[in-house]
Nucleic acid binder design. Structure first.
Length: 336
DNA sequence: AATGCGTGGGA
DNA sequence: TTCCCAAGCAT
């Protein structure tokens, strides 16, 4: 892992933020690009939000990128440009919670601090055969107490990383390889044969499904993009105008009405571009996409932009908008 | 306490 | 296809 070659606490911090809910193999190329683009805290603090969103595009959970930049500015202003090494100070930085603070303090600053992530939670729930839900405050309290008791003085960083590596390689959620596990002999769940029944997690609600309708608005070879509000889903990212609809059958009617309400322009659907499906963590969406002609000329909305097909991919977007952009770009080329 | 927040890979 | 979930955090 490239960040293990960096002794710089900044690099450890960046890697830990990127690794939140994200696999190592996904993170590696993003980490290397990021360290080239923002080699230190001052460069990151002097960047723009658009810069960090572009660097983060495709990695998901984009508030991480915005928070990383905001935290860099706080570190420049309040900590003389040096990342604090204390859990209590680290946790005050936006985007740094209990896990990340413990990881940075133990790995980058050699502090005797435990940490608790999804891997360690699973490993300890099996090692100690925890019989209650471990994704609750009371379950987590038990785990933190155990981790504090087991923490080897002077080697917390190795301890934390070793547990995470164990969880990522052998003590996996499905089909754990107990035969290869160095802790097999002291694993309480394994002794009872219940290792695949640990950890116990609360059941998750069913994902809802929503239908959206979107508009491709073209003027010559330029397309209209709009910027999402900086909070919430895909905050600060660009996309093609789209709206959630209630009635899937009447999607085209909704589109013309919503464009009038939102932008005050009259539009006419010229053709159907296609249907896009995507699964987010908490809902699935179907996007019905139409090519649209504007019948009026008073389109003026904040956070909108006319973009030539060649430049569409320069704007930070989520996966769906990126896929649409690639389609449009290849269409343009085919016509030439 | 419960929910919102992306994406990609594996079973 | 569908589900699970992966080095969590903010509100």
């Amino acid at each position: 892992m490239p960040w293990r070659d960096h002794l710089d606490p900044y690099a450890i911090w960046v890697s830990e933020i990127m690794l939140q809910q994200t696999r190592v193999n996904t993170v590696v190329p993003y980490f290397e690009r990021w360290m080239n683009m923002f080699p230190g805290i001052s460069e990151l603090a002097n960047s723009t939000e658009a810069d960090v969103l572009a660097a983060w595009e495709g990695l998901g959970y984009y508030s991480r990128a915005r928070n990383l930049r905001l935290a860099a500015q706080i570190i420049m202003n309040e900590y003389q440009g040096r990342l604090p090494g204390d859990v209590k100070e680290l946790i005050r930085l936006p985007g740094v919670g209990r896990y990340t603070a413990g990881a940075i303090a133990s790995i980058a600053f050699k502090a005797d601090e435990p940490t608790l992530d999804g891997n360690i939670r699973r490993v300890f729930a099996r090692l100690f055969d925890i019989r209650e839900s471990v994704d609750t405050p009371s379950g987590e309290k038990i785990l933190w107490t155990l981790l504090n008791a087991e923490l080897p003085e002077g080697r917390a960083g190795d301890f934390n990383q070793g547990l995470m590596d164990l969880g990522a390689t052998l003590c996996t959620p499905q089909n754990p390889e107990c035969g290869q596990c160095p802790l097999c002999g002291i694993c309480q769940a394994r002794a009872k044969g219940v290792q695949t029944e640990r950890p116990i997690l609360k059941s998750k609600p069913i994902q809802p499904h929503f239908t959206y309708v979107g508009a491709i608005i073209r003027e010559g070879n330029r397309y209209l993009l709009v910027k999402r509000p900086s909070q919430g889903l895909l905050g600060g990212m660009w996309e093609f105008p789209n709206y959630r609809v209630v009635n899937e059958e009447a999607a085209d009617k909704y589109l013309e009405r919503l464009m009038a309400e939102r932008y005050g322009v009259k539009v006419k659907i010229t053709s159907k571009q296609g249907i896009f499906k995507h699964a987010y963590t908490h809902f699935r969406l179907t996007l019905q996409l139409y090519n649209v002609k504007i019948l009026t000329d008073n389109l003026a909305v904040p956070d909108m932009c006319w973009v030539p097909a060649d430049e569409l991919l320069n704007y930070p977007m989520g996966k769906v908008a990126r896929q649409i952009s690639k389609t449009l770009k290849s269409n343009e080329k085919r016509q030439l």
